[in-house]
Nucleic acid binder design. Structure first.
Length: 204
DNA sequence: GGCCAGGTGTAAA
DNA sequence: TTTACACATGGC
């Protein structure tokens, strides 16, 4: 039974949970589409998010997304629920990225977690998901799958930051690229671990 | 038909 | 500072 994070990591790694996943686990890593997905997946299954992303078709870049009107967006993201609040929040976020950073590329280089937390609709988890999977930062995302897995290993904390500090107390990687890849996959392993338990097979 | 899903904002205690 | 509740669709 793993009691520290390095042991837990080795335990999960042995299961080869990411053998069918993309390198960085989240689909379309590093793109604006990840931001859309990060908001849409809030308290929502990924299957439903995929339907919404499919409906958005070619509007998954920042510039194309900004062309959408609110009603069209609401319609497109209906399958992933909470569309009356997710649509205006996504549009405002896109506008603020354009206003404060000028372009998506500048945003990915310069955005801070503080800036993200000021945006309506982005909390601790979504902010870290965007930093990790859009901005390629070496940051660990803590979601319900992560907490559920830790709970099963009898590891409990109160706050988000405590969970994150525990998970990030692991061998220090030398370059930011290595660190980004490491945490992107580490978080993915928790999600795939829960799916493996639920469905009995690792999803493709 | 009920429960849950890769959370967040708001209001009340 | 903590807790309760609304938000909504689709799969099981």
């Amino acid at each position: 039974m793993p009691t520290e994070v390095t042991t837990l990591y080795q335990h999960l790694k042995k299961l080869d949970l990411l053998k069918h996943s993309p390198t960085y686990w989240w689909p379309n890593y590093g793109t604006f589409e990840v931001i859309i997905g990060a908001i849409l997946t809030q308290n929502t299954t990924w299957k439903n998010v995929e339907k919404s992303l499919q409906n958005l078709q070619k509007h998954t870049t920042l510039e194309n997304f900004l062309q959408l009107d609110e009603e069209t967006l609401k319609n497109a993201i209906k399958p992933s629920g909470f569309y009356n609040q997710k649509a205006p929040r996504l549009l405002q976020l896109a506008k603020n990225i354009k206003k404060d950073f000028g372009s998506f590329e500048e945003f990915t280089c310069k955005v801070s977690k503080e800036w993200l937390l000021e945006q309506k609709g982005i909390g601790e988890e979504s902010a870290d998901a965007i930093l990790c999977y859009t901005c390629k930062r070496g940051i660990m995302v803590v979601d319900s799958y992560t907490k559920r897995t830790l709970c099963e290993f009898n590891i409990h904390f109160k706050t988000y930051k405590e969970y994150q500090a525990f998970l990030q107390d692991i061998e220090c990687k030398t370059t930011i690229e290595d660190k980004a890849l490491f945490y992107a996959r580490f978080h993915g392993m928790f999600v795939e671990y829960q799916k493996l338990k639920k469905y009995g097979t690792i999803r493709k």
